[in-house]
Write a protein that binds this DNA or RNA. Structure first.
Length: 549
RNA sequence: GGCCUUAUCGUCUAGCGGUUAGGACGGCGCCCUCUCACGGCGCAAACUCGGGUUCGAGUCCCGAUAAGGUCACCA
């Protein structure tokens, strides 16, 4: 069989150059020893979730910490899944979390010497190597139809054989020259398959950077390397791209572990040196009674977009990801909370071997702590940015009076106090939290824990006494006076010693006033709130609360 | 089902032959406090189960069990 002729016929690509050409076009990178080259290679489905960010952070740290670089490659070999604007979506989402690419698709200002970074634009390279494999007898055309393939699979399943296209089942492997040309002449569509040299009986030990030594079975599947449209499958593109883009470390999800044997054989057969691999366990979530990995289809709430919409502080999400990624990070961060995150020494071998359950409680805790580090001005900007994009029209009016909002934020964050408050978790939650400072969104709840008459008397007594000019202690003395006038305890120790002796304590009085003026039982210092609200509004709210009883 | 991987509090984990099995989140309690918080202190809470190896096993070995991943012209 004239394999040269066959290769030209099967892959009629005039752009293909000799293999050496690509080696010189994409030379080894000139980097310091130990510098790692990593990549993020999403498919442009327009959907990025937490798992992508998880892997991206690991790759980013490994690259930049070692003095290397990370690039963005778009795996757009599957047309069906392609969505317009997806690349921008990826870039924006990652930018929000401060993930920086040094080169790659749509990365402006970079040299991009290893372009193109879209796989569809790299067809020529894949074709060159596929042709070479055909010439060497290591790849062949397969004319089997989808139906034939699924029939084969069924048959194998029934016979309890391993499914797939291999060995005796790989019928097109042994097609004669005549049969091939006949099929070609008949215009039958075909794919190019690898003629696997492996044997599934053979086991080998493979060193995974995260999982350690694992045993893998040699690949014996004649996997498709070029689909019928001439575009490579993931496996083939992976081998070629990561070789020519000179990737040194591939951190990817553990769902790839199963196809590792294919990749090993492909690298071998192509004569490429393999990168180091680290298979990262995927983030999981509870699905009813069972846990499972995050799925794009089933878990839209774990889309990165979700965190933006909820107004999570990017750094908080990143810190949480880091605590899951490296088990020693949390301890380091407790001691180095004010040091840039980049100073943490990220290590691949501190990455967990089993999948972690995503814990919103933990994220929220981290978020509160992170937000408590901001100044009121920074908080203002953070909330403004979120509100502009996701807030309601009423929420946007909060920003009309900057001085007023700043006062509110200063109070709610406890700026200037001995210890910061931690009332804010996300931008969305913060905007709702401060809503009672604005008449448009203030909702009287009248949720008291005492009888209406009691509350009414207390509110009335306080209202008569209230003087906006009082300072904090004069104000509280009046609260105490109100308590006393109604038989409530003013001495908390006495009250705790014998709660039954009083209808309630000064704390309860404060709570009534708080509920009347804010609608909530949990707010920062009430005196300050009344100061911010001003005399008119405070009195009006008390008046309304009394009327409502 | 085959193959691969994993197995410590509810969750994330530390542990790398000798520990009262440590920390963080969450829960609960107490203290601080003029109210709400913040903060401090404390409590409950775990080595999946069998076998070995060893003077000694959460730690090493072998099983069982369970969980996860994967078996495409998707990545």
């Amino acid at each position: 069989m004239d394999l040269n002729k066959l290769a030209d016929l099967l892959i009629p690509d005039e752009n293909v150059k000799p293999l050496d050409y690509y080696e010189t076009l994409y030379p080894a990178r000139d980097l310091e020893k130990g510098a790692e080259v990593t990549r993020l290679a999403p498919s442009p489905t327009g959907f990025i979730h937490l798992g992508n960010l998880f892997v991206a952070i690991a790759n980013e740290r490994i690259a930049h910490q070692s003095g290397g670089l990370m690039y963005l490659r778009i795996e757009d070999t599957d047309l069906k899944r392609k969505v317009d604007g997806a690349v921008d979506a990826v870039k924006n989402a990652l930018k929000y979390f401060d993930i920086r690419f040094d080169e790659g698709a749509e990365i402006e200002g970079a040299e991009n010497k290893y372009a193109p970074y879209y796989q569809r634009e790299r067809a020529e390279i894949y074709h060159a190597f596929a042709k070479d494999l055909i010439r060497r007898g290591l790849a062949y055309p397969c004319f089997c139809t989808e139906e034939e393939l699924s029939a084969l699979r069924e048959q194998q399943t029934e016979a309890k054989k391993i499914t797939g296209y291999y060995g005796e089942y790989a019928t097109c492997r042994n097609l004669t020259e005549e049969q091939i040309y006949e099929n070609l002449k008949a215009g039958k569509p075909y794919v190019i398959r690898l003629r696997s040299q492996g044997n599934a009986e053979n086991k080998l030990t493979f060193r995974d950077e995260i999982k350690g030594d694992i045993t893998v079975t040699e690949n014996d599947q004649d996997v498709v390397i070029l689909k019928s449209d001439g575009i490579p499958t993931y496996h083939f593109a992976h081998a070629i791209d990561d070789h020519f883009m000179r990737t040194t470390v591939v951190i990817r999800g553990e769902e790839w572990l199963a196809s590792l044997p294919i990749h090993i054989e492909l690298f071998d057969v192509l004569g490429f040196r393999r990168p180091k691999y680290g298979h990262n366990c995927s983030l999981q979530k509870m699905d009813g009674e069972t846990r499972r990995k995050l799925s794009k289809r089933k878990d839209p709430e774990l889309s990165l977009e979700f965190y933006r919409q909820e107004g999570y502080f990017a750094r908080a999400v990143k810190v949480y990801m880091l605590t899951l990624l490296n088990s020693n990070f949390e301890e380091w961060y407790m001691k180095n909370a004010d040091v840039p995150l980049e100073h943490f020494k990220f290590s691949i071998n501190k990455m967990g071997k089993s999948g972690a359950l995503f814990d919103l409680n933990k994220l929220n805790d981290i978020s509160k702590n992170e937000l408590a580090k901001l100044s009121e001005e920074e908080m203002y900007n953070f909330l403004l940015a979120w509100t502009n994009e996701f807030g309601t029209d009423t929420q946007k009016t909060y920003f009309a009076d900057k001085e007023y909002l700043l006062k509110v934020l200063t109070l709610c964050m406890g700026v200037g106090g001995k210890k910061r408050r931690k009332d804010f978790t996300t931008a969305k939650q913060a905007m709702e939290f401060i809503s009672y400072f604005f008449d448009e969104t203030f909702v009287p709840t009248n949720a008291y824990r005492f009888e209406g008459e009691t509350v009414k008397k207390i509110l009335q007594t306080f209202k008569d006494l209230y003087d906006a000019a009082d300072d904090s202690s004069a104000w509280f003395n009046k609260v105490k006076a109100v308590a006393e006038a109604n038989g409530f305890a003013t001495d908390m120790k006495a009250y705790k010693a014998d709660p039954a002796a009083f209808p309630g304590s000064v704390a309860d009085v404060a709570e009534m006033l708080r509920v009347a003026t804010t609608g909530l039982a949990n707010t920062p210092d009430l005196w300050t709130i009344m100061q911010i609200l001003g005399k008119e509004r405070t009195l009006a709210r008390l008046e309304n609360a009394i009327k409502a009883l």
